[in-house]
Design a protein around this nucleic acid. Structure first.
Length: 562
RNA sequence: AGGGGAGUCGCCAAGUUGGUUAAGGCAUCGGAUUUUGAUUCCGACAUGCGAAGGUUCGAAUCCUUCUUCCCCUGCCA
């Protein structure tokens, strides 16, 4: 877990080298999300990497909103991003930064580039620009506006800022090389005219800088030493370096790219996630089935579980294709030691204890955790009528069955061994009740002369309280819902693969102690899994509302499935 | 006149100035403990590093050729 030594990876190797060689004397990283959506599990990987490195090297990590496109960015997202990072347990250095904090400096650097003859105002429209750019096999052609004088460019750029031109009518471009095999270097646009209200700067600007131009300068201004990003930006690195090499700036961070996470049975495109929300296929960004950080939180995943997951998947430049079960496994593992145990029956079948004797048949108390005696115990009262899990009874048991069946014995967890003597059915043939007898000599001790292997959970009918329980399963039935092609070779709409059974809401019986739990309290329901009181719908003192976080590992079910 | 990356066990992933039997985790399979078929604990798990050649006393690491996969033609990030 978090106390394990950090796993070596190529980025740490680079940093170690930089520290030894003296190229760097400290480590400063940053996490730079665009506030145009909610953070998801892929961002969690990046957050753990950037903040984790800063912690391990006693450096710092900044949180910077990459807010250069006002058309897509919203305050709601920015606020959610801060909350998510904090919830994961990380603390950014100083205040939250914004690329927009640097708009004035960015503008000044643009004038510097113009003055040096390295940038020009272009009047090609989008379509023309695409045509001039060429393609993979054809070099591009110089824009007819490329040869304007410095004075003309400066005047035009200032007029752009002053709002004298229509949106999209002009751009500021770098003069690099239209013949470069790297398309990013074919005179990239660094400013566009766009009249949109910005979340931080309002309407004070009508020109906005582009990512490639903004990101490197923002990094440099913040004194970032290692700028970590995903692989698709590898082709942008020459541009990152070109900009910093051609302006007057002291710092030059090193961009290092790593592979992005591809989690199976999940989509992690902000656009697609937003589609699920907008089309109400989920209840919102924080629907417990969403791979968003806020969704995982509501599902009951712990920050520790997500961090353990990030640690396990590693950091490299190879494909990082991870099965969803790895995430669940990491979460389950952290919850094992952290959650108190409690008993719940999700799908009850009534059991009458035929030889129950008031005043003689006794109850025991049960510990909240098998390895944490200090967490205390609570009484688990027994009564003449109890509920057991329907799936713990089989009329025709398969080979190896250790649970209840007619004529056999089973241990009631924390209580007696019982034997099923009679199965009661309704007119339709459904099992509606089991009549069982207690072996009075088995409370707190094993029966003599025979071994009872099975243990099932149960709850007293008269003591149990009702709870709403939401059973969640994965959202998609396909491992790669957004990469399935139909007979026509086209991608099939990923929404076709939504798992219709990904949410099932039931009423279950639980121990009364949970009703006073605060929202976001996690429990293990013994033999079933980990459940959390819903962040929004559970109210302490009211009818409990639980979300199933993840089931327990189930060797029996796995064996049966084979 | 295309460019940029990556191929080490089922899934991740260390290892790369060539040097003992190729780390570790997850999964899996055995076995022990267990009043959760959970947990925990033991043990097993790549004569092999995309393929084929070559250099060398010695190659996952160097050379050659081949091959597979990913990314790039927004005034998005």
């Amino acid at each position: 877990m978090s106390n394990e030594a950090p796993v070596s990876n190529f980025i740490r190797a680079i940093i170690d080298g930089d520290l030894v060689s003296g190229k760097r004397s400290s480590v400063v990283t940053r996490f730079p999300p665009e506030p145009n959506g909610y953070l998801h599990v892929g961002h969690a990987k990046s957050i753990c990497l950037n903040f984790g490195i800063a912690e391990d090297y006693q450096g710092q990590c900044n949180l910077r909103m990459d807010d250069t496109n006002p058309e897509k960015e919203e305050d709601e997202y920015a606020a959610a991003i801060e909350a998510d990072v904090r919830w994961l347990g990380f603390a950014w250095h100083g205040d939250v930064r914004h690329a927009s904090d640097y708009f004035e400096q960015l503008y000044a650097y643009a004038e510097e580039l113009i003055s040096a003859g390295k940038a020009f105002v272009c009047e090609l429209n989008a379509e023309e620009m695409r045509e001039y750019r060429g393609d993979f096999s054809k070099p591009g052609r110089d824009s007819p506006y490329r040869t304007r004088t410095v004075e003309e460019n400066l005047a035009l750029f200032r007029a752009m800022r002053a709002g004298e031109y229509a949106d999209g009518s002009k751009t500021l471009r770098l003069k690099i090389d239209m013949g470069s095999p790297n398309l990013n270097l074919r005179d990239p646009v660094i400013y566009r005219i766009k009249r949109a209200t910005h979340i931080k700067t309002g309407d004070s600007w009508c020109i906005y800088p582009m990512y490639d131009y903004t990101h490197c300068i923002s990094d440099a201004l913040e004194g970032i030493t290692h700028s970590l990003c995903t692989l698709e930006f590898e082709d942008h690195r020459p541009l990152y370096d070109w900009v910093l090499d051609n302006i007057t700036i002291a710092s030059h961070p090193q961009q290092i790219e790593f592979s992005r996470l591809e989690l199976l049975y999940v989509v992690t495109s902000k656009r697609k996630l937003k589609q699920l929300v907008d089309e109400q296929l989920v209840s919102g960004w924080d629907d417990p089935r969403m791979p968003t950080i806020t969704g995982m939180r509501r599902r009951g995943y712990s920050p520790e579980g997500i961090k353990l997951f990030a640690q396990r998947i590693g950091v490299s430049k190879g494909e990082n294709i991870i099965d969803y079960s790895i995430l669940e496994g990491a979460v389950r593992e952290t919850l094992e030691e952290a959650c108190p145990r409690v008993i719940a029956v999700l799908d009850p079948i009534k059991v009458t204890l035929t030889n129950f004797e008031a005043g003689v048949t006794a109850s025991r108390s049960a510990p909240y955790h098998p390895h944490h005696a200090e967490w205390g115990e609570r009484e688990v009262p027994i009564a003449p009528t109890i509920y057991v899990e329907r799936e713990d009874f089989a009329e025709v048991p398969p080979a190896g069955w250790q649970r209840l069946t007619l004529g056999s014995e089973v241990r009631l967890r924390y209580s007696y061994v019982i034997k099923c003597d009679e199965v009661v059915k309704d007119a339709a043939g459904n099992v509606v009740e089991l009549k069982c007898s207690i072996d009075p000599a088995t409370l707190g001790q094993n029966p003599v002369g025979r071994k009872v292997k099975g243990v099932i959970h149960w709850i007293s009918a008269e003591h149990a309280i009702e709870a709403e329980v939401r059973l969640y399963d994965r959202l998609f039935t396909e491992a790669r819902p957004d990469a399935v092609r139909g007979a026509d070779g086209q991608y099939v709409d990923f929404k076709q693969f939504i798992n219709g059974a990904s949410l099932q809401t039931i009423t279950a019986y639980v121990e009364p102690v949970v009703s006073t739990a605060a929202p976001e309290t996690r429990y293990q329901f013994e033999r079933l899994g980990y459940f959390v009181t819903d962040r929004h719908d559970h109210v302490a003192g009211g009818k409990p509302v639980f979300n199933r976080t993840v089931t327990l590992k189930d060797a029996w079910a796995a064996k049966e499935a084979k």
